[in-house]
Nucleic acid binder design. Sequence first.
DNA 1: TATTTATGAAACTAATCGGTTGCAAATATA
DNA 2: TATATTTGCAACCGATTAGTTTCATAAATA
Lengths: 111, 111
Amino acid sequence: MRRDIFQAIADPTRRAIIVLIATQAMTPNALAENFHTTRQAVSKHLRILTECEIVKQEQQGREIYYSLELKKMKEIDKWLEQFRKMWESRFDNLDQYLAKIQKEKKHGKSK
Amino acid sequence: MRRDIFQAIADPTRRAIIVLIATQAMTPNALAENFHTTRQAVSKHLRILTECEIVKQEQQGREIYYSLELKKMKEIDKWLEQFRKMWESRFDNLDQYLAKIQKEKKHGKSK
DNA sequence: TATTTATGAAACTAATCGGTTGCAAATATA
DNA sequence: TATATTTGCAACCGATTAGTTTCATAAATA
């Protein structure tokens, strides 16, 4: 299946699952209790998240604990990087500009 | 239409559009030249991006220039925040630990 | 061993998605 | 004014999506 992490986090239920397992590993049954869907639906979401390597499994007897693969979240962050530079540079430049003209006002024009 | 920013960025063409207009405003026609789809398909993507307020329009005669609404990108960043805290505390600590033991290997145990 | 529990997978369905073609409206140009 | 250009919108279509129900398997428990 041709799924990437951006499609994976497009679904609100999957985002909620991601948030839930971020702090502690959970079983499909425990996860399903948090949603108004069947356990099987949650299982399908977990399948997709597993395919994208966003979650990892750890079997314990007949239970399977799912937990978050944090480094995959970093991939989204990496894509955002290019825009972060922009919004940071815009405001930073404004700050610098304001600081500059304020300095010039005080001390007279000096490079 | 029940669309949010996460669904908006799920489509690769829309992500490419976002990147293209991030640096300079562009018309639908100019944008369409960058993809193997019709202008109308690009127009539909722009409609979705507009509904999500990810892009803003500026009419100039019969042309419409689309540009990025940077602050919407920040919303994704905001969601990522909760995970960033985690990976920074985990991986940065790991990096520091690795750097530390490497240093100790070279120079002998020194703080 | 028989039963219950936890899980994934298959088959099906209604809704949505991304694309197309065709058209209408508005603006620029001949 | 007649024509060309730029654009958005509607209607349609095949593929995908998220959900359901049903079933099979494996592990725990009675």
